[in-house]
């Protein structure tokens, strides 16, 4: 028998769609110069953010984003049932050290680029399942910590190929709640890992595109929606 709140192969739907009642973001200077620059709550020019290491800077960004979102929602940490967060570093240290400071029951996540989405999907499931009233979700990354962990030291001279990507410096946080005003989460489509054999670490786009395309198609099939249901893909 199919699960009660599952549509098709990969999509869950929510009986009482949880609302995103608040969101906060903080970003680095390159992101601040970009087209979304005006939308961030705070732009930090210094890649060290006044700390001794980039890792500490990233952790501080996540912590400030979390505190900011609580402030925007007019809540304090006791109002939050669970916190879901992750980042790109070993042992998801930024999320862990942030959780240490907030004293909220914590589930650490690792979904690389999909961590924020993974957190929001799980938060919606927890809330609609009746296990939580409000869930805090966040994730962070930092150009320099990611380069250091996955590629080369930042001061090493390399010629970036045309397909090289640039990891965002920044952190974001949202609060999902059973009650409240804001956009609601109606469905969540969980993607599969799809490997079409792309081996170039400097071309992540080509490696990730098949899974993204598959998830989008599966979402449309599972929800019986046509592509024109959405304004933009």
């Amino acid at each position: 028998m199919a699960a009660l709140k599952k549509n098709g192969r990969q999509t869950v739907w929510f009986q009482n769609p949880p609302a995103i009642i608040a969101a906060a973001s903080i970003a680095g200077s390159k992101e601040g110069d970009g087209p979304l620059g005006k939308t961030f709550d705070k732009v930090v020019e210094d890649p060290y953010f006044g700390e001794k290491t980039w890792e500490k800077a990233e952790q501080r960004m996540l912590q400030e984003a979390m505190q900011k979102v609580l402030e925007k929602a007019g809540l304090n940490f006791r109002d939050i049932d669970f916190m879901l967060a992750g980042d790109l570093l070993n042992q998801i240290i930024c999320a862990n050290f942030t959780a240490r400071g907030l004293s909220i029951p914590f589930l650490g996540l690792y979904g690389a680029c999909s961590t924020m989405y993974e957190g929001m999907a799980l938060a919606a499931i927890m809330i609609d399942g009746g296990f939580a009233e409000r869930v805090l979700v966040g994730s962070s990354s930092h150009y320099s910590t990611a380069e250091k962990q996955y590629r080369f030291p930042t001061e090493l001279g390399v010629q970036r190929p045309m397909t090289a990507q640039w990891t965002v410096t920044g952190a974001g946080a949202v609060i999902l709640a059973r009650e409240g005003a804001g956009p609601v989460v109606t469905h969540a489509t969980i993607g599969k890992v799809i490997d079409l054999g792309q081996g170039d670490p400097n071309d992540m786009g080509a490696a990730m595109a098949p899974a993204a395309a598959d998830t989008i198609v599966r979402h449309l099939l599972d929800t019986a929606r046509q592509p024109d249901y959405y304004d933009l893909f």
Partner: peptide, 27 residues
């Protein structure tokens, strides 16, 4: 400055002994 030079110059500043120095100092 050295990584900025190499971003343009590629092998031109990786192959000489200066590139070796860069690969030691950067880490």
């Amino acid at each position: 400055i050295y990584d900025e030079i190499t971003r343009r110059a590629g092998a031109g500043s990786i192959v000489p002994i200066t590139g070796f120095a860069n690969s030691m100092v950067a880490p």
